[in-house]
Amino acid sequence: MFDFLTPLSDDLIIEIHKVSNQALGKKIVMHTSHEAPILAKNSVAIIGVLDNRGSEAIADFENLNAIRLNFYNLFPGNWNNTIYDLGDILAGNTIEDTYFVVKKICAQLIKQRITPILIGGSQDITYAMYRAYDTLEQMVNLVTVDSKFDIDNRQNAPLACSYLSKIIIEEPNNLFNYSNVGYQTYHNSQEEIDLIEKLHFESYRLGEVSSNTTLAEPIFRDADVVSIDMTAIKSSDSGNTQHFNPNGFNGKEICILARYSGISDKVSSFGLFGHNNTDQEAVLISQIIWYFIEGYHYRSKEYPIGTRENFIKYIVPIDDEDLIFFKSNQSERWWIQIPYANEGNKLKRDTLLPCSYEDYINATQQEIPERWWKAQIKNSL
Rank of each mutant, 00 (worst) to 15 (best):
M1R: 10
F2T: 09
T6R: 15
L8Y: 07
L12Y: 09
I13P: 06
I16H: 04
H17L: 11
V19N: 07
V19C: 12
M30I: 13
S33L: 14
H34M: 12
I38S: 14
K41A: 15
N42A: 09
A45Q: 08
V49E: 03
E56W: 09
A59T: 13
N65A: 11
I67G: 02
N73S: 12
N73A: 06
N78T: 10
W79N: 10
I83Y: 03
G87P: 02
L90C: 08
A91S: 14
G92W: 08
T94A: 05
V101L: 10
Q112H: 13
I119K: 00
G121W: 04
G121P: 08
S122C: 08
A132S: 15
M139F: 12
T144N: 06
D150V: 06
P158W: 08
P158S: 07
P158T: 08
Y163M: 08
Y163C: 09
L164D: 01
E171T: 14
N177C: 10
V181E: 02
G182V: 00
T185H: 06
Y186E: 13
I193G: 05
D194E: 14
L199D: 03
S203Q: 14
L206M: 09
V209M: 05
V209T: 08
A216K: 07
F220S: 04
F220G: 02
D222E: 12
A223N: 09
S227Y: 03
I228P: 00
I228D: 01
K234F: 04
S235I: 08
S235F: 07
S238N: 03
G248N: 03
I254F: 01
L257Q: 04
L257Y: 05
S264A: 11
D265L: 07
K266W: 06
S268V: 11
S269I: 10
G271R: 00
N277E: 12
N277D: 12
T278M: 08
D279L: 13
V283W: 00
S286R: 01
I293N: 07
E294H: 14
R299A: 07
Y303N: 08
T307W: 08
I312E: 12
P317E: 08
D319R: 10
D319I: 06
D319N: 13
D319W: 04
L323Q: 00
L323E: 00
F326A: 01
N329C: 04
W335P: 05
I336L: 10
N345K: 07
N345Q: 14
L347K: 15
R349A: 15
T351D: 11
L353A: 09
Y357T: 07
W373R: 11
I377A: 04
N379S: 10
